[in-house]
Write a protein that binds this DNA or RNA. Structure first.
Lengths: 109, 109
DNA sequence: ACCCTTAGTATCACAATGTAATTCAAATCA
DNA sequence: TGATTTGAATTACATTGTGATACTAAGGGT
């Protein structure tokens, strides 16, 4: 099963589409999470997810701008999307009947 | 931050109210999760959560039925509920805009 | 030409979490 | 008494999460 950070990373990458690369993903995560995302967490996790086949990555070209170093581009694979969906569904299922999950009077059936 | 299993455990215990003890929680988790919950996962996690003040536990009386051994009763503390809520909210926030989280045409705003 | 700043990636070591396997305890029932 | 049943505890190891630190290359200013 995915961990919470892994889930956040996949979701961020998926949202960025073809603009997904390390640093951008990091910003996404911080925005969505409201917490710092350390460099170590980022690249270590990217590597692990790639090893599991949930991401595919490759080095892009360096861009012609100050500091424009080559980027590690990231693509979420089918397996990656599926894993994310499973994580999400699992949390939803567990949260049925949880007080903190019931807002707006939804009965969640 | 809580892990996913920790979240499931707190949620199960909260749902069981004053009937929350090791074995019952385990069944809850398996039902909600659709996956096996090993004994080790259970008690190790209970212990860790208690150490962090998210749960309180104590030994109950042995019940007068075959094998009715004393139970370790579990109560979710305020801090525990808060942590669970935070986990849930974090997942929700991260999942805004995620394709797999948008069902029923909700725009999620 | 040289150094500073900037955008990025890479790695290591360790902490926190997740899980299986195995053992122990106490109570009934035959 | 001893087999059966409910339930808890321990051990050891795998997986995830994270901070600290280092590295690389480009542009800009002087």
């Amino acid at each position: 099963m995915l961990g919470e950070f892994e889930y956040a990373l996949i979701t961020a990458a998926a949202g960025l589409g073809d603009k997904a690369y390390g640093a951008a993903i990091r910003e996404e995560i911080e925005a969505a999470t409201l917490r710092k995302c350390s460099i170590g967490a980022l690249y270590t996790t990217i590597e692990r997810l790639e090893k599991k086949g949930l991401l595919k990555t490759w080095m892009g070209e360096a861009t012609p701008q100050r500091g424009g170093r080559a980027k590690r581009m990231v693509l979420v694979t089918e397996a990656g999307e599926l894993a994310a969906k499973n994580f999400y569904d699992a949390v939803m299922r567990v949260s049925l009947n949880a007080r903190w999950a019931m807002e707006k009077g939804e009965s969640l059936l």
